[in-house]
Amino acid sequence: MAKVIVLLPIIASHLAIFTLFSAFTTTIVAGADSDFGTTKTQNLYRLKKEKLTHFRFYWHDIYSGPNPTVVPIVNSTIKNSVSGFGFISMMDDPLTLEPQQSSKLVGRAQGLYGAASQEEVGLLMVMNFVFLEGKYNGSTITILGRNKALEKVREMPVISGTGLFRFARGYVEASTHSYNQTSGDAVVEYNAYVLHY
């Protein structure tokens, strides 16, 4: 019994040293998640309080005239398709404050969209809103989602951004202001709600 009493402090001290060493090793390993990535805390990037910003502007998708802002790059091969399934267009559309194309330019919508539905007009939209005005100049937000173009209001997600919109998320609502069936030209009002730091 005396041997057990003498051994208890020694075992306890070894256990304490082992526990400290294990905790130290775990701390070192936690900082090095893998060969190519490490976990960081948000404070490292000095992120401020998250805020919600609302933008409203008009997107001008112009197929006609001498300076189109959108061009078809793949045409649908399906005859008499009501949805245009398979077509793809590339855009560099102006974003203006008002529906008139001559109003103040605040940015550009750069990307592409394609008909991704066989049964209805359902577009896959992949675009960056590149801001050219004020404190947002040079920053972007990225939209990736489904646009049911014939509905009155369509919602698509904001999945990211750059500049002032790093780590951004949110959504946009699109509603058609005007559409010319002959030329394909469209003006769409966008309301973007973006959470960012």
Rank of each mutant, 00 (worst) to 15 (best):
Q110N: 00
V71T: 00
G31R: 01
G122K: 15
K49H: 15
L105I: 10
W59P: 01
R154L: 02
A192I: 11
A2S: 06
Q100D: 13
L47R: 15
T26W: 04
F85R: 09
L8Q: 09
G163R: 01
S139L: 03
A115F: 10
I143S: 00
V106G: 03
A109M: 10
F57A: 10
T38R: 04
N128D: 10
D185E: 02
R169H: 11
K135V: 15
V172W: 02
M125P: 06
A115S: 15
V106I: 15
L123P: 06
L132K: 05
I141L: 06
T176D: 06
T38A: 06
I11D: 00
G145H: 13
T27I: 12
I5F: 05
E98M: 11
A192R: 06
D92L: 05
P68N: 07
V121N: 06
G134F: 06
W59S: 03
F21R: 01
I5T: 05
I62R: 14
E133H: 05
V130C: 01
S139P: 04
R169S: 03
F85K: 12
T77G: 14
L8K: 14
Y190N: 03
L44E: 15
I78L: 10
P94A: 07
G170R: 12
F87W: 13
L44I: 04
S139H: 03
V188T: 13
D92F: 07
G122R: 14
N67D: 13
Y197E: 03
I11K: 09
A30D: 06
A174K: 12
Y113L: 09
P66M: 13
N147K: 07
E151W: 08
E133Y: 05
L150F: 06
N80H: 13
V70C: 11
T25C: 14
T26Q: 05
L132E: 05
D61V: 07
T26V: 14
S81Y: 11
L132Q: 02
F18Y: 11
I28D: 12
K48C: 09
V126S: 10
N191G: 03
F167K: 10
Y136K: 00
L97M: 12
I5R: 14
L144E: 00
R146P: 00
E155R: 14
T182Q: 14
Y193N: 01
S64F: 15
A32T: 08
A32W: 00
K79F: 05
Y58L: 08
F57E: 08
G84A: 08
M125L: 15
A16L: 14
L124Q: 11
A109R: 12
L47H: 13
D33I: 06
A174V: 12
L123T: 02
L150S: 02
Y197V: 05
R166G: 02
S103M: 09
T77V: 01
G86R: 11
L95R: 09
K49P: 05
Y193I: 02
K152N: 08
K152F: 08
L105N: 02
T142W: 01
Y190L: 08
P68A: 12
L124V: 04
T96W: 12
N180Q: 07
E98D: 11
E120P: 01
K152M: 04
V130A: 03
T96S: 10
I10C: 06
I159Q: 07
V188W: 11
T38L: 01
G138A: 03
T140I: 12
I143T: 04
F21Q: 08
K40C: 04
